[in-house]
Design a protein around this nucleic acid. Structure first.
Length: 274
DNA sequence: GAGTATGTTATATG
DNA sequence: GCATATAACATACT
């Protein structure tokens, strides 16, 4: 489910359905999803409060209450549903907020990699977690700065939330395909121009997905996500899609469109002499 | 049973 | 201590 565009969809859902509602009951069904808080604390923070906003930073979601924010991370399989009183909750509901009008906001998460916590401010949360700039607003300069001083592969950097917040495995592949960059290309070889182009492609790809409500089938032609599997035809007609592992994650790419250029000298660390 | 999965982080390694 | 790579987390599905 959840990379930046999917989280943005959830944010919009909450904004559309929950704004101005007062929480009558906050219930935690599985405490293992709580991060840095307890069920008691969450109740105290939420019950009787009004939902004033739904915000997002990278993949992180925030439900703004009168006094503080509920921080929700969807992990790998998390989702937030807003259901009527009469609808039975999904099988893997882990927590819910019931509103005074009977609607229920349900946090559903089969694999329980997600989390729910409390925070006083987004600024504080972002700095405490060391998150990089949100992928939708990150500049080429910011990206180039991080890339230039890393010996890692460009894909590992795109996935690193300390560098850039919001890109996950699927969108990383799409961005690299659009930019015609091989996932294993050393980040330090990307250069200023390359980083500017990557930053542009990141915005294009994320916006395109949000525009089709993350329904990959409705993406325009030319998007890898429409058919991201080994042996599929390259969307540009240049060959077959191949898969390799980068940092333990499957990485689909077109070896023809995205050749690997070997390679440049690694970044020299401080203090090293030849 | 084996292998895979949209994420993060603790732990290991050099 | 730092940069980087890998294992582990829990569950469902092919």
């Amino acid at each position: 489910m959840p990379e930046l565009p999917e989280v943005e969809m959830v944010r919009r859902r909450i904004e559309a359905r929950c704004l101005g509602k007062v929480i009558s009951e906050a219930k935690v069904l599985d405490v293992s999803i709580l991060d840095g808080t307890t069920a008691i604390e969450l109740r105290r923070a939420a019950e009787g409060r009004e939902v004033q906003g739904a915000l997002r930073y990278g993949k992180q979601l925030f439900i703004e209450l009168d006094d503080g924010l509920v921080a929700v991370h969807l992990g790998m399989t998390g989702d937030v549903l807003v259901l009527g009183d009469d609808v039975s909750p999904p099988k893997h509901a882990r927590a819910w907020l019931r509103f005074d009008d009977g609607d229920v906001l349900v946090y559903d998460d089969p694999r329980k990699f997600g989390s729910i916590g409390l925070t006083a401010s987004i600024r504080g949360f972002v700095s405490a977690h060391g998150l990089g700039p949100d992928a939708l607003v990150a500049t080429g300069r910011q990206l180039g700065e991080s890339m230039s001083r890393s010996n890692r592969s460009v894909k590992s950097l795109l996935l690193d939330q300390h560098v850039l917040a919001g890109i996950g495995n699927l969108y990383a592949d799409e961005v690299l395909f659009q930019a015609r960059v091989h996932p294993l290309q050393p980040a330090s070889s990307i250069g200023e121009t390359g980083a500017r182009d990557l930053a542009r492609k990141i915005r294009t790809v994320l916006r395109a997905s949000i525009a089709v409500e993350t329904d990959f089938g409705r993406l325009p032609n030319g998007f890898l996500l429409k058919e991201r599997e080994e042996g599929a035809r390259c969307p540009r007609g240049n060959g077959r899609i191949a898969m390799l592992r980068v940092g333990g994650r499957s990485s689909y790419h077109c070896p023809v469109c995205q050749p690997l250029f070997r390679s440049m000298a690694p970044v020299r660390r401080r203090g090293k002499r030849i």
